[in-house]
Amino acid sequence: MTEMFTFTAMVQKKEGDWYISSCLELNISSQGKTIEEAVSNLKEAVEIHIEREGLDLPIKRPFLTTFKVAGKRSEEKKPQ
């Protein structure tokens, strides 16, 4: 019987028109011109990876947290 498993995707906008999506559990990334396309491509890459590697599921999810560091805010560019 096939089950559904949940993975964590991080999506970042890169310069230009591309989004990069990364699966935090498997350290796999993909890209797309929209958020939806980037996540869809990542899902396909994860499915292929699981099949090829014969991974046991479920995979432990990462622990996510935040932290702060000191720094100076960059000044915004003013329109000319």
Rank of each mutant, 00 (worst) to 15 (best):
F63K: 14
I59T: 10
L57V: 05
E3I: 01
R73Q: 15
M1Q: 09
T6P: 04
E36S: 02
M1Y: 05
K33T: 10
A45G: 12
E76Q: 14
N41S: 07
F63S: 13
V69P: 01
T6L: 09
L55G: 07
P62L: 11
E75P: 00
S30F: 06
T66W: 04
Q31P: 02
E25I: 06
Q80V: 06
E15V: 00
I48V: 12
S21C: 11
I48Y: 09
L42P: 15
T8L: 06
G71Q: 06
K14P: 00
M10L: 13
I59S: 01
L24Q: 09
L26F: 11
T34R: 00
E76V: 14
K68Y: 10
Q31I: 00
A38E: 05
D17N: 15
I20F: 04
R61K: 15
L26Y: 02
L24I: 06
E53W: 11
E76K: 15
N41M: 08
L26C: 02
E36I: 02
G32I: 04
I50Q: 09
A45W: 00
S30H: 05
T6C: 07
E47F: 05
E15W: 03
T2Q: 10
A45H: 12
K14L: 13
K68I: 02
I48P: 00
P79T: 03
I35G: 03
K68N: 15
T8S: 08
V69Y: 11
M10F: 07
S21D: 01
D17A: 14
A9Q: 07
E75F: 09
G32D: 04
Q80M: 09
S30Q: 06
E3N: 14
K14A: 10
G32C: 08
G16P: 08
F63W: 03
S22P: 00
E76S: 14
L26S: 01
I50E: 07
S40E: 14
T6R: 03
S30Y: 04
L57W: 03
T34P: 03
W18M: 15
K68P: 00
E37C: 01
M4G: 08
E3T: 11
W18C: 10
E3D: 13
K43C: 08
F7I: 12
E47P: 13
V46D: 01
E53T: 10
D56L: 15
L64N: 04
T66H: 12
I35R: 12
I59L: 13
E3A: 14
G71H: 12
I48H: 13
M1T: 07
F7R: 03
M1S: 06
R73H: 11
K72Q: 13
K77F: 10
L57M: 06
M10H: 15
M1W: 00
E76Y: 10
F5L: 09
N41D: 15
S21K: 02
H49Q: 03
G54C: 04
P79Y: 10
T65Q: 03
I50P: 07
A70Q: 12
A9E: 09
S22G: 02
K60R: 12
L64R: 14
K78D: 15
M1N: 08
V69F: 07
K43H: 03
S21H: 00
S40C: 05
R73M: 14
E47D: 09
L55T: 05
S74K: 11
M1R: 08
V39H: 07
P62A: 08
